[in-house]
Write a protein that binds this DNA or RNA. Sequence first.
DNA 1: GTCTATAGACAGATAGAC
DNA 2: GTCTATCTGTCTATAGAC
Lengths: 174, 174
Amino acid sequence: MPPEEPSTRDKLLDAFETLLVTEGSRSATLDNVAGAAGVSKGGLLYHFHSKDDLVDAMLSRMQEMGERDIAAMRTAPQGPVDYYLETSVDSGSAFDRALIAAARIAQENDERAGNALASLREQWFAVLSEHLGDEALARTIQLIGDGLYFDDTSGFTHPQALEHVRDVLARLDF
Amino acid sequence: MPPEEPSTRDKLLDAFETLLVTEGSRSATLDNVAGAAGVSKGGLLYHFHSKDDLVDAMLSRMQEMGERDIAAMRTAPQGPVDYYLETSVDSGSAFDRALIAAARIAQENDERAGNALASLREQWFAVLSEHLGDEALARTIQLIGDGLYFDDTSGFTHPQALEHVRDVLARLDF
DNA sequence: GTCTATAGACAGATAGAC
DNA sequence: GTCTATCTGTCTATAGAC
């Protein structure tokens, strides 16, 4: 059977994330979100009683994807380090979009978003640290991942960045 | 003679930056900026005719500080690499605050801010690359700097991060 | 140079029709 | 489940007093 059309609820969450990522939090208004999802503001507010509600739902969806990502990282055939660095380059996946959207919300002084992201980061670090048995190296690799992510989401794109990082890490033989 | 009290104009720019950094772009309204600087909205609009004007002035001030920073990086006694990494940890300096504020503006799809930041980044990279004679290493160090900066400004603080990075870089003997 | 008052657009949210 | 109409507050910006 063909893939289902996403529910209106999911279309609204997608539109909210996309607006946050591409135009920033000031453009992610209820009006714009509803419009981008092809419904009216009243329609949006049937699914989410308030903007806070919309944020909560977005973060829940992100956390679910996060659990799956960390499980995938633990069992990745290329190993956790390469998996982590590869997925730090924005691939345009639904999870990437959710992470960037959550970061935008966190910047508006939102504790829920800040805590959700902090929790994910701790789990990524734990996997790197366990696998490498070297906290300093694990921290450095996470910083490189943060840098890749930051550059991508800020429009500072360097096509060879990942290649350069692999080159340098290869000199460290771990 | 004692240091001069900052002008109202500078107090307004400082307040704008601080609001952007601590509470995000949605809180950086003309009302809030004026209030934080201790003047009325009318007072603000005497100095800056529009919000766009305020952004332009903020970016100009940042670019001036950026030129001085790149000059300091070139002649730093500890060398450009260590200077760059140290100043990537948010020290709370006026320049750091301006950089973070500009990043917030850039995220709202503002080309001026995006271009100003991209230009600074290219100059930092050029100094690193010249000094090291190794593009891959220069890129990796810039990514680590971006990671340090991103973590600090997102509230993901790791007190030992800089120490860990130095530890790992020491293994690369360059 | 700084203020108050106000205009006009837009924000989040409610009520009720369909 | 989705719509329109509307309320209330806030946003940027203007006008004019002091």
